[in-house]
């Protein structure tokens, strides 16, 4: 449904995204992983319309949206969260989510009701009256998720919504993400927490230094030589393979 074709993003001399393509299947949870500084967030910004790619094209349901403004893309059904959370700090949680709900509900009472429903879905119903600025890290991540969800998107772009959460908070939010997908929203998620990627994603893309170096099921990708080297450095794949061969073939095995 969402296609990125040969996207390149240059910042002066730095090439943050280099001829990267990706194709998200409708109804899937697709992962986007890669080392720090790989260009993942930049690619999200291109998809959501916040950055105009130097080259390449973006399309949604076959319709080219490369030149559309961010708010037009939101109307078309693309919602993003921000890696560095961007709450409306002066507003409370309910008001924050209501801004998102107004996209599909012009009537205030409808938007307010929709926001309450979304808050319940992501587990923020107890915090509705709290100021957004007073939330914990986990609360703020849920708020990012809730606001995006309130726009009733077709595809939800999640940029490291699990980062900074402790293991029990991660355990709490994984089913929330799965429920969102089951309700018919396609998800593309950037994630460093591998446990979550293995758990949730059907398909994973790997970006390293701006290039898409691998794609496939989580297991396939994790055993991919190029991927291991991208994360751990050159020659590491071979070293690991040798070590495990020695271990399994050794006398103590």
């Amino acid at each position: 449904m969402l296609k990125v074709e040969n996207a390149t993003m240059r910042f002066g001399g730095l090439i943050a995204v280099n001829n990267a393509s990706l194709d998200v299947r409708e109804g899937s949870i697709t992962g986007l992983i890669g080392p720090n500084g790989a260009g993942k967030t930049t690619l999200f910004a291109i998809i959501a319309g916040f950055l105009k790619p130097t080259e390449g094209a973006i399309s949604l349901y076959g319709k080219d949206i490369t030149t559309e403004q961010p708010h037009r893309r939101a109307i078309s059904g693309i919602a993003r969260t921000f890696q560095i959370v961007q709450p409306f700090a002066g507003l409370n949680v309910h008001e924050n989510i209501t801004v998102g709900a107004y996209l599909r509900h012009a009537k205030p009472s409808d938007a307010v009701e929709k926001a309450r429903e979304v808050a319940r879905q992501v587990g923020l119903e107890k915090d509705l009256e709290k100021s957004a600025a007073s939330l914990t890290v986990a609360g703020r991540k849920r708020l990012e998720l809730a606001r995006a969800l309130a726009t009733e998107p077709k595809i939800l772009l999640l940029d490291e919504v699990l980062a900074g959460l402790n293991p029990s908070e991660i355990r709490d939010i994984i089913p929330v993400i799965r429920t969102i997908r089951n309700s018919g929203v396609t998800i593309l998620m950037i994630e460093h927490v591998m446990q979550a990627v293995m758990n949730l994603c059907e398909h994973v893309y790997v970006l390293a230094q701006g290039k898409m170096i691998a794609e496939g099921t989580p297991t396939v990708v994790c055993n991919d030589q190029a991927v291991i080297e991208a994360y751990l450095g050159k020659g590491s794949a071979e070293r690991i393979a040798r070590q495990s061969a020695e271990n399994t073939g050794g006398p103590n095995a």
Partner: peptide
């Protein structure tokens, strides 16, 4: 609500279709 959202955070507002 849109006006307040723009005051509080323009990027977040854009992402929500404002």
């Amino acid at each position: 609500a849109h006006l307040v959202a723009v005051r509080e955070n323009e990027d977040a507002a854009k992402a929500l279709g404002v």
